[in-house]
Write a protein that binds this DNA or RNA. Structure first.
Length: 112
DNA sequence: GCTTTGACCTTTA
DNA sequence: CTAAAGGCCAAAG
């Protein structure tokens, strides 16, 4: 877990993820495109695997379909959904997040 | 220092 | 419409 001040790839991802307000979710592709690496969305998720869950709200990051792909990386597979529901995120019957309602859109100001 | 491995996305067939 | 493969960049072995 690198320092918040360094400009490593990790910190850049963490910064964006921290900017996601409660009750909102984003996708790996969005973050990737935000960093200028549209095709390398894998790195985003990989970076989160090394992220500190207490420092980065990784539970607000889902895949393109709104599925909680990283649920197995949490304490328990239910933790991710529990936290999102706790924040008021609506889930579908499939257990996927309603992106139409909760997808967070980054702004040019957010990236600084 | 080369090989493997990802919490994915986009493009072809 | 579904299915497969390619691509991308960065760590760990």
């Amino acid at each position: 877990m690198p320092n918040p001040d360094d400009d490593t790839f990790f910190s850049r991802v963490y910064r964006l993820v921290r900017q996601i307000p409660p009750g909102r979710v984003t996708t790996y592709g969005m973050i990737a495109e935000m960093l200028g690496i549209r095709k390398s969305a894998r790195m985003v998720g990989w970076a989160l695997s090394s992220a500190d869950l207490s420092d980065v709200p990784a539970h607000r990051v889902v895949n393109r379909y709104g599925a909680l792909t990283g649920r197995l990386h949490f304490l328990t597979p239910e933790t991710m959904r529990e936290m999102l529901e706790s924040e008021g995120v609506a889930f579908r019957d499939d257990g996927t997040v309603d992106l139409e309602r909760h997808m967070y859109r980054f702004t040019s100001r957010s990236s600084s």
